[in-house]
Amino acid sequence: MLNFVDTVADAVAGIRDGSTVMIGGFGNAGQPFELIDALMDCGATDLTVVNNNAGQGDQGLALLIKEGRVKKMICSFPRQSDSWHFDAKYKAGEIELELVPQGNLAERIRAAGAGIGGFFTPTGYGTMLAEGKETRIIDGRGQVFETPIHADVALIKALKADGKGNLVYRKTARNFGPIMAAAAKHTIVQVSEVVPTGGLDPETVVTPGIYVNKIVKVA
């Protein structure tokens, strides 16, 4: 069921405490700042957040972490020069971290969207990030079993949507958007422009509207 809503507050209404929330973006590119701000305002807490990073500077995901709304981060690269809010929470033992190699993060999200129960990959074999995981030798290489990452909600940013919820993105801001849209039960998208149905060339659609539940235009 696809809904176009007028405000980011309407878009995030219904996100419950304890939800697993995927947030698109790599660094600031593709990060849906307005939706994250709305998530902050709506008060949902005790969240598990899936993102490549763990917030930068004093905006977006970093503020959500600062305010103690995130109980667990699933990410590949939390430590950055400006990740001070995550750093403080982590050092205080107030946030849990599941550190995942970036390719495993992407593929585990993709697997969830594709109905795959898990996969073996050489990435991480023989390292501390594979400790406690099932391994096999496949085609002569050590491989590690990785499971899908599902989410209740995905918050992503795209460039344009049409009336059917089909999405196109812009340059490297695409990053996690398409796979998170497929992996979450409920996908909320902020776009810069909504065009009429038929206004996107079907050959160029990146995320088909079947994966999208709510769209809000953000100026």
Binding site: F77, P78, K91, V100
Partner: peptide, 8 residues
């Protein structure tokens, strides 16, 4: 604080 990114 560990951070691995795409290195592996």
């Amino acid at each position: 604080i560990p951070a691995v990114g795409g290195a592996m």
